[in-house]
Every structure is written in structure tokens, then in C-alpha cells.
Amino acid sequence: MSSPDLTLYTDTAPNGVKITMALEYLGLPYKTVTVSISKLEQKEPWFLEINPNGRIPALVDNTGGKQKKLMESGAILLYLADKYDPEYKLSYPAGSDEYYEVLEWLFWQVGGLGPMQGQTLHFLHYCVSKSPEVRSYGVARYQNETRRLFTVLESRLALQKSTKSSPFLVGDHLSVADLACLGWVLADNFAGIASEDYPLLNEWQDMVSGLEGVKKGLEGYGIKKVGQDPELTKIASEYNSKWIKIQFEEQLKLGQK
């Protein structure tokens, strides 16, 4: 097989670090192009040619001279596992029980934990509405749902510990299911979720974050530290609120056309 020729388009966000963790853990060479979401570079024409949805991350694989463009973090994780993980370091053989369990938890994250926690962060820190009722309803709605989803993860880890003596979400080793969830769980305090309320989940995030490869893939992702420091939280909230407001206004303009 040709040496991998991979380019990752990303920024330091929960969905972006999923891919850097996977690439580093698998020991794959790759180039990184920073797409600054605070400057709305993800909406620029050059990036929309790579990912028409205008979101990070995106991956371009030019291995062997044949180009493949991928969007959506879950799809990228599955692609890397299928094509570049023959030793099943982050995956399980197709058709096995563990293979389908990985799919379950990966889809659970991209369809539930990510969107719900993302909305929690929006209403808690970046809401552009001047109505306190809108903000308080949004925070309560999405924060409560995020807590429910954290409880689901806590229960899963308890089951794994009791039945398989495993600290991972699926099977007996790290998988893309763990990596898909980790970036969001690390944002627990930033989302107003007390990590001490979920002891197994707290142990899991510390353990997985410290694994060789995963740790390197998380470099520059300081969401945990930000969430634990009120002053850093305030700074991050104010900074992100500015560009999110600009993006919101741009979306309103598009909707009026």
C-alpha cells in the first residue's frame, strides 16, 4: 500500500479532535490545514468545495493518486478504521458483535450527545437573543438532556466494568466510539455539567486522554481547563459570542433571500 497522503481540515473543536486523536493513535502521517471557524473560513468557497456542509472537520485522502473527500466526523472515523486499521487498534472485525456496538455508540454520539451538548454550550455561553426567557429555557432544555446522555454513558461504563472488566465503551480496547465521545465529555464543566456527578465517566475521560496518541491528538484542545476556570470561561464566551452573532446575522440574510 502507498504511504498515506492525508490532509485534515479542522479547528480546535470537539468534532475536530476526534480525527486528530484517531490519526495520532493509528500512527498515520497527515497534514493539517487550520480552518478558523471564528473567522467563518468554513463558509468560504474553497472549503465548501471540500465539504459542502460548511463544517469542520473534513479529510482529503490522496493516497495512490486517487482523491477521496470526506465530511462528517463519524464518517471520517469509520473511513480511517476501515482503510487504515488492519490490526484493529481502534476497531473490531466487520460483522462481529463489537463492530455493531461501535456503530451504535458512534451514531449515538453524532445524533445525540454532540447536538444536545452543542446546543447547551450555545444557550449557556453564546445565545444572541436578548430575551432572558429564551436563554433560560434553552439552557434548561439542553443541559437536562445532556445530563441524561451523560447518565447513559455512565451506565454503559458500569456495565462494561461489571461484565467485561473493561474501561472502554465497547469490547476490551479503545475504539472510535470512545474517541467520538471524548472531546464532548471533556467539555463537561464548560457545559455546566459537574464531572464529579459521573465518577466512572470522569475516570474514563482521564484514562483515555492519557493514552499515547490520544494525548497528542488532544494537544491545543484546552476545553477542560477553560471549563474549570471562571475567568477563562468568561473570555471564551465573550470571544465566541462575537463571531457566532456574525454567523447568525449572515444566516438571517440567507433566509430572507
Rank of each mutant, 00 (worst) to 15 (best):
N62R: 14
I76M: 07
D85K: 01
Y79D: 02
A81D: 00
Y99V: 11
Y84I: 07
K69P: 00
A94D: 09
G65S: 06
Y79K: 03
Y84Q: 03
Q67P: 01
L77K: 00
Q67W: 07
Y88K: 11
T63N: 07
S73T: 01
G64I: 01
G64H: 06
E101L: 15
L70R: 03
I76R: 02
Y84C: 06
S73N: 06
Y79V: 08
K69R: 08
S91Y: 07
P93H: 07
S96R: 15
Y100V: 13
K66H: 13
L90V: 08
D97C: 08
K89N: 12
G95N: 14
A75R: 00
D82V: 08
K69D: 07
P93F: 06
P86E: 04
S91H: 05
Y99P: 05
N62K: 12
T63V: 08
K89W: 04
K66L: 09
P93L: 15
K83C: 12
Y88Q: 09
D97I: 14
A94I: 10
K69Q: 11
Q67Y: 03
K69W: 02
D61M: 04
L90F: 07
K89I: 06
D85N: 06
D97A: 13
N62A: 13
Y84R: 06
E72L: 01
S91K: 08
A94V: 13
E98S: 15
S91W: 05
N62C: 12
S96N: 13
Y92L: 05
G74D: 00
G64Q: 10
E87A: 13
E87Y: 08
L77M: 06
S91M: 01
D97Q: 14
L78N: 09
K83M: 10
P86H: 12
E101K: 12
G65W: 10
Y100R: 15
P86S: 10
Q67L: 03
A75L: 02
Q67V: 15
L80I: 11
S96I: 12
A81V: 05
E87K: 15
Y100T: 13
D61V: 07
G64L: 03
Y92C: 03
K66V: 14
D97N: 13
K83A: 09
E98T: 08
T63C: 04
K66N: 11
N62S: 09
G64D: 08
L80Y: 01
D82Y: 10
A81E: 01
I76A: 00
K83N: 14
G95D: 13
L70V: 11
Y84T: 01
S96K: 07
K68Y: 03
L70K: 07
K68W: 04
Y88E: 10
